[in-house]
Design a protein around this nucleic acid. Structure first.
Lengths: 113, 113
DNA sequence: CGCATACTTGAATGTTTGTTCAAATGTTTT
DNA sequence: AAAACATTTGAACAAACATTCAAGTATGCG
């Protein structure tokens, strides 16, 4: 038997994430797949910041930051609050930093083995 | 005062993830930012599979799967074992599926609010 | 009102990324 | 040894993405 399967594939197929769900997972992770977005999030972890100061602190242009904030907004990772001509952004919840801690450990593990 | 900062920026700057660390985090998340890679991982969660069967089960070409496995390999999410002309892949650890559960919940939350 | 400030938006651009296709490597079977 | 099979690899191509730049909206100040 050469072309035959080694496993019962039809059973496994049922456990494979369906396209829609896989897509949603991928989109979420894509949101966190940019270094500058991590820097933005880590800045906001210290508290609310207006766009201008945020840009200053992460060393990006205001426009670039604004574009990135839109992405973080649609993925509901940040909230915002208008105050006069300023807009203050903050983290929506701490979820992300538990995540950060977990992954951080995983990345450190990778050194051995 | 109009151009002035609302917050003590120099203090915040110290809490911003440095480029290298932000980069490593981003790279890890980028690994999980593709729907097909999630489907591959979910298939492997049921047990070892050779490339051919994996490709069958996730409905991709063998070549495409092989390319993606390389990425998962460099991020140490999968392990492999050669057996004759077959190569069996499996998950390196369950880490990813705790992650999966967490995010899955976060995505469901997003419906309200 | 008119100008400066804060932020957002859209088009343009260069880069990254995933798939396909063809070819290369390695293994087993006849 | 030849043919079939399993996997990997590299180049080519299209799609997705992040930044820049310029223009647009909106709020506050003189």
């Amino acid at each position: 038997m050469s072309t035959d399967e080694y496993t019962n594939l039809s059973e496994i197929r049922q456990h494979v994430l369906d396209i829609a769900k896989a897509q949603r997972m991928a989109e979420f992770f894509a949101t966190l797949s940019d270094p500058n977005r991590w820097r933005i999030l880590s800045a906001l972890a210290t508290g609310e910041l207006r766009v201008r100061d945020l840009a200053d602190v992460v060393d990006m242009s205001e426009s670039a930051v604004s574009h990135q904030l839109r992405i973080l907004r649609t993925m509901r990772l940040v909230r915002y609050r208008k105050d006069g001509r300023n807009v203050f952004y903050g983290l929506k919840d701490d979820h992300i930093f538990n995540l950060y801690r977990d992954i951080s450990e995983h990345l450190d593990e990778s050194d051995d083995d």
